[in-house]
């Protein structure tokens, strides 16, 4: 179980994450929503300590993550794989090597300098690529793939970290609806079949409603809603996205790139 306790992050002039407390059970798929600048990305990066919190704690299975250092910290980062909006592959390396990068932290530094990976690591990478249907592209350079394919490579890279948690920061924001759906489907499939906890920043509301067990909404750095998709009514939504009187337009704007037209937002 992942526990976040009174987590704060201040940048020079902004209080990006304010007193955030959350509990996320093993195997849950949680969607984090909120308007731009609400602090979603910052919160995710605090969890794997790509950035340091100003105060507060992150606890995983009783272990204080905020206190980890050196090797232990790197081990924790391997445990919670991250997926990014811009995929963040190394474009000049081939797809297979990009996936293998997920194993780097499990290996000593020196053999890694000559990019030598063990047979078992390669087998894992091949399996992961198979799973996201990209095995045939394994030896292509990463920048020759389409956006949707690149994001699936990133998922494969995350998978071979053999993580407990997947943190996804707007994984579908740069994809067309079809590819977005493929990516969300594979995240959900990984969540359900492997029992991995998935924490996913999303900016389309009904994607979050459709795929996630639970929704957390942030505004100005604070959590303003934490509950099941059904509990998220239009009044709450209006509050989250700014509370303007013409929030309906706004909501339509937000949901216009929706993957499933089924879940409409009541007026």
């Amino acid at each position: 179980m992942l526990q976040v306790k009174a987590l704060n992050k201040r940048f020079a002039s902004t209080h990006a994450v304010k007193e955030v407390s959350l509990e996320i059970a093993k195997g849950e798929m949680v969607g984090v929503i909120g308007s731009s600048g609400a602090g979603k990305s910052t919160m995710l990066r605090l969890l794997n300590r790509l950035i340091e919190p100003s105060s507060g704690q992150v606890i995983f299975d009783g272990r204080d993550i905020t206190a980890l250092k050196g090797k232990e910290l790197r081990h924790w980062r391997a445990q919670c794989a991250m997926i990014f909006q811009q995929f963040n592959l190394v474009p000049r390396l081939d797809v297979l090597t990009n996936v293998l990068l997920g194993r780097v932290s499990y290996n000593p530094t020196l053999p890694m300098m000559i990019r030598h990976f063990s047979a078992s690591d390669r087998a894992l990478a091949a399996q992961a690529l198979e799973r996201v249907n990209l095995l045939p592209q394994a030896l292509q350079r990463a920048d020759t793939l389409s956006g949707g394919q690149q994001q699936r490579v990133a998922i494969a890279r995350a998978l071979i970290q053999q993580p407990q948690i997947i943190l996804a920061d707007e994984p579908i924001a740069s994809l067309d609806p079809r590819n977005a759906q493929m990516v969300m489907d594979s995240l959900r499939e990984i969540n359900q079949r492997d029992g991995l906890t998935v924490l996913c920043n999303l900016h389309t509301l009904d994607t979050a409603k459709h795929y996630c067990d639970r929704i957390v909404a942030m505004q100005h750095g604070a959590v303003v809603f934490n509950g099941s998709p059904e509990q998220l009514d239009s009044k709450t939504i209006r509050a989250i996205y700014g509370g303007q009187s013409d929030a309906q337009d706004l909501i339509e704007g937000i949901t216009s790139t929706s993957l499933t037209a089924k879940v409409a937002v009541p007026a």
Partner: peptide
């Protein structure tokens, strides 16, 4: 950032 996030040194 992506490589750092995998836990690389």
């Amino acid at each position: 950032e992506a490589i750092r996030a995998t836990g690389a040194s």
